[in-house]
Nucleic acid binder design. Structure first.
Lengths: 145, 145
DNA sequence: ACTTATTAAATTGTACGCAATTCAATAGCA
DNA sequence: TGCTATTGAATTGCGTACAATTTAATAAGT
């Protein structure tokens, strides 16, 4: 007999393994991130700063798919740790500029070993990793509009 | 010039699109889940209950990759909504049995349209969806040990 | 039987994550 | 120039997540 509720079974969901995988991987990051005194969300925020050096909260939010409700307290914590500075733009005081500090730059040297160490936890063929990467960005692209 | 910090760029991460994708999809679920008065986490908990009818907190946690710190308050909320009952096992009082109620069963009828509606948000070929599904469970399997 | 170890939930504390609202600054327009 | 609309952050409130600890119940070993 076919089950009319088959579509509600956990094993038939695509979102659930996405959700679980994301959580479990972030959990695996923790011991490595503890070494540099960052949470995962703080880490990806620092990644953007390491690359751009300076940007405002809105831009950062667009990079990370996060809003000010998440970023405001997070950036205050990173400022307290000395990794960045927050100052209002003089041209437009609505914009809050986020600037990396010398300590923030220094941290990059300690963090650079993290991607390699995490790579060992996820054993995918290059081909598989690329497939996964592309599928995820395909979905993200569709969700953007 | 090669950038020695290339591995720290957001665009070279595999975990980040996983994290972002998971969050964005869960966000897309919200309007549909509002209709049945569930959050995403409550929804996947109900999925397990719809299938099994009854199980204890530990088993549920293993299905969902969640611990009692998350599940205890969540199950209390679902109990308050009338979708399930929580009672200690008589055989072993350490175990808390979670039992679906008649209202919980009823809810399944309202929820059955959700997977289809969400499917429209994610436009993947069958082939792609299967690839993604398998890659995610491959990673989850590796993270289990 | 008594002691110790293990187990299952609950609790505590910290950090997101997001919808909704508020507030201040600027842009647009009559 | 005023008035209104929009914009960017901050705030508020609620619901997870999870590490670490606590508590109560049972299992295991002597």
């Amino acid at each position: 007999m076919s089950d009319e509720y088959e579509s509600l079974k956990l094993k038939n969901q695509l979102c659930f393994p996405l959700y679980a995988c994301s959580k479990e991987i972030v959990r695996r990051y923790k011991p490595f991130l503890d070494e540099v005194d960052l949470t995962y969300t703080q880490y990806i925020a620092m990644m953007v700063l390491w690359e751009k050096g300076e940007l405002n909260v809105k831009e950062l939010g667009e990079c990370l798919f996060l809003d000010s409700g998440t970023l405001t307290p997070l950036l205050k914590k990173l400022e307290k740790k000395g990794f960045l500075e927050r100052k209002r733009s003089e041209k437009d005081e609505r914009n809050l500029r986020v600037l990396i500090t010398k300590e923030g730059e220094e941290l990059k040297k300690k963090a650079v070993c993290i991607p390699e160490q995490m790579g060992k936890c996820i054993q995918l063929e290059t081909e598989e990793a690329m497939q996964l990467y592309q599928l995820l960005y395909k979905i993200l692209g569709q969700l953007e509009q």
